[in-house]
Nucleic acid binder design. Sequence first.
DNA 1: ATGAAAGCGCTAACAG
DNA 2: CTGTTAGCGCTTTCAT
Lengths: 353, 353
Amino acid sequence: MTSAGFGKPDDKRRRTIRDVAAHAGVSVASVSRVLSGKYSVGADTRSRVLRAVQELDFVVNAHARALTSEQPGMIALVVHAVTASFLANVAQAVEQQAAAEGHLCLVCTTQGRPDREVAVVNLMREQGARAVLLVGGVVETEDYPARMRQVAHALDAAGSRLVFCGRPAPAPDLPAAVVTYDNEGGAYAMTSFLVSAGHRSILFLGGDEGHTTADERIAGYRRALNDWAIPFDPALVQPGPFTRTFGYQRVKALLGKERTFTAVFAANDLVAAGVLRACREAGVAVPDDLSVVGYDDLPQAADFVPSLTTVRIPHDELGRAAVRAALHPEDPVDDHVLGTHVVVRDSVRPPRR
Amino acid sequence: MTSAGFGKPDDKRRRTIRDVAAHAGVSVASVSRVLSGKYSVGADTRSRVLRAVQELDFVVNAHARALTSEQPGMIALVVHAVTASFLANVAQAVEQQAAAEGHLCLVCTTQGRPDREVAVVNLMREQGARAVLLVGGVVETEDYPARMRQVAHALDAAGSRLVFCGRPAPAPDLPAAVVTYDNEGGAYAMTSFLVSAGHRSILFLGGDEGHTTADERIAGYRRALNDWAIPFDPALVQPGPFTRTFGYQRVKALLGKERTFTAVFAANDLVAAGVLRACREAGVAVPDDLSVVGYDDLPQAADFVPSLTTVRIPHDELGRAAVRAALHPEDPVDDHVLGTHVVVRDSVRPPRR
DNA sequence: ATGAAAGCGCTAACAG
DNA sequence: CTGTTAGCGCTTTCAT
């Protein structure tokens, strides 16, 4: 390997504002003023400082700066995993909006371990993060609300903003903002869509039990059923991980027996991908023999075979809105729960009679 | 207690180590010692400090700490976009490894704008990042090597490590580490695989011109052709963006005319997805009428129809190795260029004769 | 317009 | 083992 260049005879000590001042023949105060740009400085002094900065290739020490002045601070993004397409999309939007507003973006992953979430939040307190965004649904364990209450107050006491993004507030009156999208409404719309296509027996598949996102989607599904006067069959809701594997295995098993449902509402597109594959292997034609829909509208959903009818979530808007809510708490907002809508493709057809 | 005059319950000022010391009735040094854990402290003192920390819900100021002691520092990850599946996977691995070694992970995106790359690196210098990882290929513009040389030296002077990850070093003897995977070898193996299946006319599709990754893959393709004594036809290499859309549109156009090739080697799986869709729409059966392969082995590649034969890149190993190279420069490493291999699925068949 | 100097919150000698 | 104190690099009064 090329460790060759590392041992430069150069003094590794970072240059300080003092070095610059000496080099330019001015005081440290002047250098600071030039660098911050918000004070009037003589033209001569300014140019000498600038030249010295150039020649010494100086950059300020962000830590020292943070210690004295009110700093921009970073935006911390806490997600389950960056590899989850939905989260990556939100992260992308957050990152862009944060950059646009002059903030750095720290991404932390929890791997779904709840304890990591509070550990990460404490880390952010240490860093003096300007805001912490908790993105994506969670499994609401018993102690979750209490833990969040504590976290919210700790952050608030440190002058940081907490934002729940794509996740409901665990309790009312928390010092935190909430920016979500209409999970329940999207599921309602999708279920209605299936019903109007003639389906009466719809399997809802996937979504961890107690997971906020899953719960909301199931709630929408049930409300639609209710509104259409279709009796709810508990056996038709089969919770499970939000994974391709779960969708595949569960449907594979179900396809073995006598099948009662004519459509599958997968909890998300990943689950739907598994369902489609299971159908293909079992020789069940989609949508002719079985209709399948998903939720999220991942980029690849359009490429599924058949292309997937699913619910679109406005990732970009979500990410941007979350950053704005974090940075401009006082701003009036049009809507804190963003709309979702059904994207119709080729995976639904009226059931065979 | 502190701030007698300002006893407001909602005093937003962050608590300091001094508050803790006062509350515990010990000196600030003792508090610092207990917190850092690396000094011997009396049991009584320790417990009093710990209790005070609890009661005050205190967390240290990471900036102040960074100013005095040799700190862990963060690992900065610079990528084109987090939404690119390959980059997200590497980011995931980096994040995990960094966390395991006690480092925070900052993710910055460049949106492919080269100027953003150097801006971001300067930001990292200000933050005193422990390491900066430049992940993924780039289009090597004319001034790219010079810019990287400057960046590398600036980072080196600040005591940070620069790591090129999944990208070759722009010049030799740079104070930076390189951790890559065998792009050329993977393409060679894949091309050989197609040739042994009987293909003699293979279209290489996609990959921006001048992009390091694309160049390496094309090099492997050409070397294989050469080794099999198959004349190289320049018309059979069609560069373009690494996108689904490009694969789709280009193949759509090509399928209109008389077709000479019997197989398509897509520059990556995204391009392959576009190719498959174009084929489906044009009624060209894959793999019966045309073989299609990709590169990357995205999670969804197994779900393509037909499932895609592609080249697997060891994302996880790549991310972990990059972090290790950054954090332990002196460690001996088995290999700085990780192996790739062909994953055989259902999208290749001997050409019709 | 510029310089001197007092901290920001913390750690690390250095005494005791 | 514990307390005192001198900075880390920078910003910001306060003088000049």
